[in-house]
Amino acid sequence: MRRTMLFLPGNQPRMLMNGGLLGADSIIFDLEDAVAPDEKDAARHLVRNALKTLSFGTCEIIVRINALDTPFWEEDLREMLPLRPAVIMPTKVSGAGYIHTLEEKMTAIETAAGMEAGCTRIIPLLETAAGIENSFEIAGASRRMAALYLGAEDLTADLHCKRTKEGGEIAYARGRMVMAARAAGIEAYDTPFTDVEDMEGLRADALYAKSLGYTGKAVISPRHVDCVNEVFSPTAREIHDAQEVLRAIEQGKAQGKGAVSLHGKMIDAPIVERAKNVLKAAEDLGVLIHE
């Protein structure tokens, strides 16, 4: 599961060293926005050495590379892919053609390194109006596609509007992107909440994203990890209710019933599917207790 994806600036050695100890499910080594143009080479070397020499435990490794309209992205791939990160995160993705260009280069580098072609997944960062409008096309552009990720800071700049805590200005983008991801059969991850001090605001923002269907959320501060992990984890009550639903279904089948009710409410296919999703998440997190 990717409840949390924590950004780590590629030019900050101390944060890179502690990445596996901060509680995030995935850590994103950032070679793009967090790194000034004259520090790109140094950051790339720091991240390369970190991946070669350090253990990050069970954390999934993601590398955010520079955009394809910069002179940095190809070297990012050449340095990073042979170190076998689980995911490459391309930025400013605007359409399927962007993904096709990226995938062609990834396949060439993997093949030259003796790796299985296609073994590295892609989570594109959608942070422009074009990217949001083309989100379904992007979601289906490659078999490598693991998820879509929303980037609100650059998106609001592209929209010529102010980024707010309330998030009304990105409501359409959030809905459009999660719909595209689900229609394509992949996951969707929400944009970071950028006020490091406002924990109540963070929780409300994460709960809202979860209510829309997002699987998890990116974070820019280790302080946000525990809260977001909690929001995107099934609660004990949710697990109990899901188990009740599946027991009721099994009992109904055993009794030859065509329709089953629980606590006075009919159980239909969507309710069963949601219950299975809750229990799968609990199992993945190791918190499933069989009643």
Rank of each mutant, 00 (worst) to 15 (best):
residue 7 F to P: 00
residue 15 M to C: 04
residue 16 L to V: 07
residue 17 M to A: 13
residue 19 G to S: 05
residue 33 D to K: 03
residue 39 E to N: 14
residue 41 D to V: 13
residue 44 R to P: 02
residue 46 L to P: 03
residue 48 R to V: 00
residue 50 A to E: 12
residue 55 S to L: 02
residue 59 C to V: 01
residue 69 D to N: 11
residue 69 D to C: 01
residue 71 P to Q: 08
residue 77 L to Q: 05
residue 78 R to K: 15
residue 79 E to A: 13
residue 81 L to G: 01
residue 93 V to W: 13
residue 93 V to I: 06
residue 99 I to N: 11
residue 110 E to N: 12
residue 110 E to F: 03
residue 112 A to L: 06
residue 113 A to G: 06
residue 120 T to S: 10
residue 125 L to V: 01
residue 131 G to H: 05
residue 136 F to W: 11
residue 137 E to T: 08
residue 139 A to V: 01
residue 140 G to A: 04
residue 140 G to F: 02
residue 143 R to G: 09
residue 149 Y to I: 08
residue 150 L to H: 10
residue 152 A to T: 08
residue 155 L to N: 04
residue 155 L to C: 06
residue 157 A to F: 12
residue 161 C to I: 09
residue 161 C to Y: 07
residue 171 A to V: 09
residue 172 Y to W: 15
residue 172 Y to V: 10
residue 173 A to P: 02
residue 173 A to Y: 06
residue 173 A to C: 03
residue 181 A to P: 06
residue 181 A to I: 06
residue 185 G to T: 07
residue 186 I to F: 14
residue 187 E to T: 13
residue 189 Y to M: 07
residue 194 T to K: 11
residue 198 D to M: 08
residue 199 M to N: 15
residue 202 L to V: 12
residue 205 D to R: 14
residue 210 K to E: 06
residue 216 G to H: 04
residue 222 P to I: 11
residue 225 V to S: 12
residue 230 E to G: 12
residue 232 F to T: 11
residue 236 A to I: 13
residue 240 H to C: 01
residue 247 R to A: 14
residue 249 I to G: 01
residue 258 G to D: 05
residue 260 V to Q: 05
residue 263 H to M: 10
residue 265 K to E: 08
residue 266 M to C: 06
residue 271 I to R: 15
residue 275 A to M: 14
residue 275 A to C: 09
residue 275 A to T: 08
residue 276 K to R: 15
residue 278 V to F: 05
residue 281 A to I: 05
residue 287 V to N: 10
residue 291 E to C: 12
residue 291 E to H: 15
